[in-house]
């Protein structure tokens, strides 16, 4: 794998995470539990769409095959997507959505923090902008997880169920492969495996405040970030998201 291939894969991972999770959040548009949450969720989704444009835009340039961010977003099939499985998991109830958001935000904020010092100036520049947005995402999702975990009996039970359901998807964010090794060697991005300790400490702190129990089983589902085996959920998401572009390939919108 050339350095350029590895960089392309890395950028797809970053951009596909925000693309797919941003899409999931946008599914809440108009139906959130309260107006203020509806507006806040839309802000998070908007941030992610913006970050996607940067990551995938740069990915297209690195690839050098004349694909822009839209082309990459709307014309690849599931096996070419490189997001972690966590991002494509369905919204479920609001608790599941917020738990998924927190588990991702915690990783995202730590990871972007490292990218600020990337040897690739474009990566550092995107991380600089994104990390400010993500710091707020984390503050908000952590606060909501705490409030609902420590809220009523029902909200506590729902949040615990969400954590139990999603926790097996956490491990994938800390796996390393050849792409990561190349990125680490080039000083472009950290090896994800080195971030787990910091992540665990952060999650443990929030879950303690939320009175939620972190599952002991650390088994990790994987296959998203290398595209080997996504969940069944991704195909349906893509059907919806890509439909117009696929149905009318010659159209400009």
């Amino acid at each position: 794998m050339t350095r350029q291939d590895a960089l392309f894969q890395f950028l797809l991972r970053m951009g596909d995470n925000t693309l797919i999770l941003g899409h999931r959040i946008s599914e809440w548009c108009g139906i959130a539990p309260v107006l203020e949450e509806d507006i806040a969720l839309a802000n998070t989704a908007l941030d992610f769409i913006g970050q996607t444009q940067f990551w995938l835009g740069y990915a297209g340039e690195v690839e050098g095959k004349d694909q822009d961010a839209d082309r990459l977003a709307f014309h690849r099939d599931a096996w070419d997507f490189r997001n972690v499985l966590l991002c494509e998991m369905p919204n479920g109830d609001f608790g599941q959505t917020i738990m998924r958001q927190f588990l991702f935000d915690a990783w995202h904020s730590i990871f972007l923090g490292r990218l600020l010092k990337s040897s690739d100036p474009r990566v550092a520049e995107i991380a600089e902008k994104a990390s400010k947005e993500v710091a707020y995402h984390l503050e908000r999702s952590a606060g909501t997880v705490v409030a609902l975990g420590d809220g009523t009996e029902e909200s506590h039970a729902r949040m615990q169920a969400a954590l139990d359901y999603l926790y097996p998807y956490v491990g994938e964010m800390f796996l390393s492969d050849e792409v990561d090794q190349q990125m680490a060697e080039a000083g472009i991005a950290p090896d994800p495996a080195t971030l787990r300790e910091e992540y665990d400490a952060l999650v443990a702190r929030v879950m303690a405040e939320a009175t939620l129990n972190i599952p002991e089983n650390r088994y990790a589902h994987k296959g998203g970030r290398d595209g080997y085996m996504h969940t069944e959920h991704l195909g349906h998401l893509l059907c919806e998201m890509q439909w117009l572009q696929r149905a009318y390939p010659d159209a400009k919108w």
Partner: peptide, 8 residues
């Protein structure tokens, strides 16, 4: 959304 509003 009721459980969310109540919980918070």
């Amino acid at each position: 959304g009721e459980w969310v509003r109540e919980g918070m």
